[in-house]
């Protein structure tokens, strides 16, 4: 009987090992461990054995049953794992297919430039001042040392509404208004906004464009303060390695007046097509506030001095991003605007 038992065990284990699937394994379980199986039969047949052999045989049968059961369970686990793996294999997807697009828009490039400039000057303690786009001749010209009849204020260059009202030609009237409103208080402002000139639209001209200007007024503001401020700005906006240089220029509302160049951010100063081989790029105009301007706004020019600067976000964007035609900024082609959707750092 022992022999019979051993044979049964080997037979069962072999069948377990051979079982290719859960179903066949279950058939093996039923065949060997089921109520009609050989092991059960053996246990039933134990009654025919002598009483003293029964415990021994019982133990033996149990060992065989446990061995078979354990083996069955192990195999079952293995088969289940295999089944899962097969299922997962079937679920495999092509991860190279594109994801579901997230609907996102972005800033217009001019806003991007303007906000960058605003943020730098805000960090330096400036407020952002805005004013009307339709201005009085007084604020647009007269208060800025451009009296009536001054050659620089040709009717042909401006969009007049009436003799005394026009579309502002620069954001400088915001400075004049701020000075008039602050009545002798120190000022630190940055003024972004739309401006208008009587130009035919072409690749480099636009009848509407953007300006951003800054104004600092206080006691003993020096030209060196202007230079220091602009140098910091140039580094922040165009890169840590940027150098600046000032060149004499002329604006009616500043004296002395200067233009600021920055060392070319494309070639670093060795000369390229961006800087027209000079190594320098003209970025902004600036100067010390003209005493007449201070005086007209009610500031004593012997006590108060100041500096002002102004630049064109279109020009900066054109230089930075290589945009060749100013009209792109106002055509609003989605294929243009959507390119400005990512960080530059």
């Amino acid at each position: 009987m022992e022999q019979q038992l051993e044979q049964l065990k080997q037979e069962a284990l072999q069948k377990i090992e051979d079982a290719p699937s859960v179903k066949e394994l279950n058939d093996v379980r039923v065949a060997y461990l089921g109520k009609k199986g050989p092991i059960t039969d053996l246990l039933k047949g134990m009654g025919k054995l002598p009483a003293e052999e029964r415990p021994k045989m019982g133990a033996l049968v149990n060992v065989v049953r446990e061995t078979v059961t354990t083996s069955l369970e192990e195999k079952m686990e293995l088969l289940e794992q295999q089944a899962v793996n097969e299922k997962l294999e079937k679920e495999t997807i092509d991860i190279t297919l594109p994801g579901r697009p997230v609907k996102l828009g972005n800033h217009h490039p001019l806003t991007r430039v303007v906000e960058d400039i605003e943020d730098f000057f805000i960090s330096m303690g400036y407020e952002v001042a805005e004013g009307p786009e339709v201005e009085q001749d007084y604020y647009n010209f007269e208060a800025l040392n451009l009296p009536k009849g001054h050659p620089a204020r040709d009717m042909q260059d401006s969009f007049y509404i009436t003799e005394d009202v026009l579309l502002r030609t620069h954001t400088s009237p915001v400075q004049a208004r701020t000075m008039a409103a602050k009545k002798g208080e120190p000022i630190k402002i940055i003024c972004p906004g739309k401006v208008y000139r009587r130009d035919s639209d072409d690749a480099t001209h636009s009848h509407q464009f953007t300006q951003i200007e800054g104004l600092v007024v206080g006691e003993d503001i020096r030209m060196s303060d202007l230079k220091g401020t602009l140098a910091l700005f140039a580094k922040k906006m165009f890169g840590e390695e940027r150098e600046i240089r000032l060149r004499p220029s002329f604006f009616p509302f500043t004296e002395p007046s200067v233009e600021m160049d920055i060392s070319c951010f494309k070639c670093g100063g060795s000369g390229c097509n961006v800087c027209k081989k000079t190594g320098w790029i003209e970025i902004l105009g600036s100067g010390m506030v003209h005493p007449n301007v201070l005086e007209m706004a009610g500031y004593d020019p012997t006590v108060f001095t100041g500096f002002a600067f102004g630049m064109g976000p279109e020009r900066i964007a054109m230089l930075k991003y290589g945009v060749e035609d100013i009209r792109h900024f106002f055509t609003n082609d989605m294929r243009f605007i959507s390119q400005f959707n990512r960080t530059e750092v």
């Binding site: 605003e118 000057f121 805000i122 060196s224 401020t229």
Partner: peptide, 16 residues
């Protein structure tokens, strides 16, 4: 011309 920054009390800047 040297590079300096305006002296005097500074106020926090910002947006309205």
């Amino acid at each position: 011309i040297p590079m300096t920054l305006p002296i005097g009390e500074s106020v926090p800047g910002g947006l309205s």
